[in-house]
Structures are given as structure tokens and as C-alpha cells.
């Protein structure tokens, strides 16, 4: 697991929001989604994930409800709120701009014009 990365501060929240963008799911499912979507690059402890979920709920980006899992067990399901959806839109746009700029800089083959 040598190539696993420490997650940048605040990044976990956006990943959680994105994981919920496809529909309500419980915490374990969110963990599974992030793990598989990131192809094992991020080392996210499940504990921090739950802390993030509750934090997002406190900020009213997600709301929760108890329900039954696929196997009929009682589980807490999380769902994006309108505010969470808005937050995801804003954050992901800003992330993409950031990532794009970093990528552009790193892949540059000629020296950019100076000031």
C-alpha cells in the first residue's frame, strides 16, 4: 500500500458528497463506493468517514434516516440535501479548476511566458 496517499484536508467531505450523489446509502456503502472509485489510491479510515458524515449532517449537507439494509438489517441511510448538492457542485468545480491547473503546469513541455 505504498502508493496510498494521505487525503488533503476537506477532500474527504467532497468525496462523501459525491458518493451520495447517486442516491441514498448507508455509511458502509459510502465507504465501499469511495474505496472502489478511488481505485485504492486514498487511505481513508472508516472512522474518519463516519466523522465526516456526521459533520456534513451538522452542516445540513446531508440528512439521515434509519432504514433496512439489503440484508434486512437496521442501518442508517444518508441522503444529500439541496444544500449538499449545491456544495458538491461548487466544490467539485473548484477542485477541477485546481487539478486542471496543476496538471497543466506539470505536463507543460515549453516554458510558459513570463510576466
Amino acid at each position: 500500500m505504498a502508493d496510498q496517499q494521505e487525503l488533503l484536508q476537506g477532500t474527504l467531505d467532497i468525496l462523501v458528497l459525491k458518493a451520495l450523489a447517486w442516491g441514498p446509502r448507508h455509511g458502509h456503502a459510502v465507504a465501499r463506493t469511495i474505496r472502489s472509485a478511488s481505485e485504492g489510491v486514498f487511505d481513508v479510515l472508516d472512522g474518519s468517514l463516519y466523522a465526516a458524515l456526521h459533520r456534513l449532517e451538522e452542516r445540513e449537507c446531508v440528512e439521515s434516516e434509519w432504514g433496512l439494509s439489503d440484508k434486512g438489517k437496521r442501518a442508517k441511510f444518508y441522503k444529500l440535501t439541496a444544500r449538499g448538492r449545491q456544495q458538491l457542485r461548487v466544490e467539485s468545480a473548484s477542485w477541477q479548476r485546481y487539478a486542471h491547473a496543476v496538471a497543466a503546469m506539470l505536463s507543460a513541455t515549453t516554458q510558459p511566458a513570463e510576466g
Binding site: 479510515l45 472508516d46 472512522g47 463516519y50 466523522a51 458524515l53
Partner: peptide
Amino acid sequence: ARFGDVEQAMAACRESDHRR
């Protein structure tokens, strides 16, 4: 092991909930 410190995580969650 994947979960990390269970007590600490639970405490963080509880605090958020209480505040909310």
C-alpha cells in the same frame, strides 16, 4: 483496523450530533 480508532470516531460523531 480499517476503521481506525473506534472510540475517537464515535466521539466525533456524537459531538456533531449533539451540536446539530
